[in-house]
Design a protein around this nucleic acid. Structure first.
Lengths: 94, 94
DNA sequence: ATAAACAAGTTTATTTTATAAACCAAATAA
DNA sequence: TTATTTGGTTTATAAAATAAACTTGTTTAT
């Protein structure tokens, strides 16, 4: 029996966000939008979900007069991602 | 920019089906159902989608008096799966 | 100074997808 | 003979993803 891939991570966009955050440690909204090619709305919604799940921490600050929304993985998010990757490897025997 | 993971393969259940078919070459409905833990209805629907996409070939035959539905990857399906795996690897730098 | 365009998002509505429930036909067991 | 199981399909419901519309404030051009 195959193990279940955490559905909170598995969605197209959330997986992209999580893998980006694994490699860069911190990323802001615009960067994530560029890299994933997502619409703002979709990105906003999916970031909320990851945040509500406790997988990422979202910080809003002012840089000069502009707002900046940046995200980073939490410890829980890192663990969830590692587990996800392990299961994925078992799927694809990598 | 991240490449897009083929959404036809990326769904939880369809990915499970495809990875199983990569390793076993041929599998019947019951086997897929056991291995994926899916409901019959969901499995039926997702097999249809993969079939309509040309990624798998579904064969229905009689074994004795019982019907048997078995599936195998098409060449197109194999290619799509290889591409999917390559993109996934690039996500997770494996 | 004011209007037009832009940035950085959020909210809401629509579409797509996944899942489950109900159903069906044939075979086997009690 | 009447349940029960096997092997599914179809249809209805729930959840998710996506896009479109909107908001708030900023910069730029006139």
């Amino acid at each position: 029996m195959l193990k279940e891939l955490n559905p909170l991570i598995h969605s197209q966009l959330r997986l992209a966000i999580m893998t980006l955050l694994v490699s860069v440690e911190e990323a802001d909204f615009s960067y994530l939008k560029e890299q994933t090619n997502a619409t703002s709305g979709n990105l906003s919604v999916q970031l909320d979900k990851l945040s509500n799940a406790g997988y990422i921490k979202i910080t809003k600050e002012f840089v000069g007069k502009k707002t900046r929304t940046s995200c980073r993985l939490t410890e829980e998010g890192k663990r969830a991602m590692e587990e996800y990757i392990e299961i994925l490897k078992s799927y694809l025997n990598l």
